[in-house]
Simulated assay, not measured.
Amino acid sequence: MYKIALFCEIPEDTMKLFHEDKYQITYEETSDVDGIVMRSKDIHDMKFSKRLKAIARSGAGVNNIPVERCSEEGIVVFNAPGGNANAVCELTFLGLLMSSRKIVDSIEWTKSLEKDVVETVEKGKSQFVGPELKGKTLGVIGLGNVGHLVANLGVKLGMEVIGYDPYISVKNALKLSWDVQYTNDINELYTKSDYITLHIPYNNETKNYINKDNI
Rank of each mutant, 00 (worst) to 15 (best):
residue 10 I to E: 01
residue 13 D to F: 14
residue 13 D to W: 15
residue 19 H to G: 08
residue 22 K to C: 10
residue 24 Q to P: 06
residue 25 I to A: 10
residue 26 T to H: 00
residue 27 Y to A: 12
residue 28 E to K: 11
residue 30 T to W: 02
residue 30 T to Y: 03
residue 30 T to D: 07
residue 31 S to C: 11
residue 31 S to L: 15
residue 31 S to W: 11
residue 36 I to Q: 01
residue 39 R to S: 10
residue 40 S to D: 15
residue 40 S to M: 13
residue 44 H to C: 14
residue 48 F to T: 08
residue 49 S to G: 13
residue 49 S to T: 11
residue 49 S to A: 12
residue 51 R to F: 03
residue 54 A to H: 08
residue 56 A to P: 03
residue 57 R to A: 02
residue 57 R to E: 02
residue 62 V to A: 07
residue 64 N to T: 12
residue 70 C to Q: 09
residue 72 E to F: 08
residue 84 N to D: 05
residue 84 N to P: 05
residue 88 V to E: 08
residue 90 E to L: 04
residue 92 T to S: 14
residue 93 F to G: 06
residue 93 F to M: 04
residue 95 G to L: 13
residue 95 G to P: 04
residue 100 S to Q: 11
residue 113 L to Q: 14
residue 122 E to D: 11
residue 124 G to H: 05
residue 124 G to M: 04
residue 125 K to D: 06
residue 126 S to D: 13
residue 128 F to H: 05
residue 130 G to F: 03
residue 134 K to F: 14
residue 136 K to D: 06
residue 137 T to F: 01
residue 139 G to W: 00
residue 143 L to G: 04
residue 145 N to V: 01
residue 148 H to R: 08
residue 160 E to C: 06
residue 162 I to Y: 00
residue 163 G to I: 00
residue 163 G to F: 00
residue 166 P to Y: 02
residue 166 P to A: 07
residue 168 I to D: 04
residue 170 V to W: 11
residue 173 A to G: 11
residue 174 L to N: 14
residue 174 L to I: 05
residue 175 K to C: 12
residue 176 L to D: 07
residue 178 W to Q: 15
residue 179 D to V: 01
residue 180 V to H: 04
residue 180 V to K: 02
residue 180 V to P: 05
residue 180 V to R: 02
residue 181 Q to R: 12
residue 182 Y to K: 14
residue 185 D to S: 08
residue 191 T to D: 11
residue 199 H to C: 09
residue 201 P to S: 04
residue 203 N to L: 07
residue 205 E to G: 02
residue 206 T to S: 09
residue 207 K to I: 06
residue 209 Y to R: 13
residue 211 N to D: 11
residue 211 N to Q: 05
residue 212 K to Q: 12
residue 214 N to E: 09
residue 215 I to C: 09
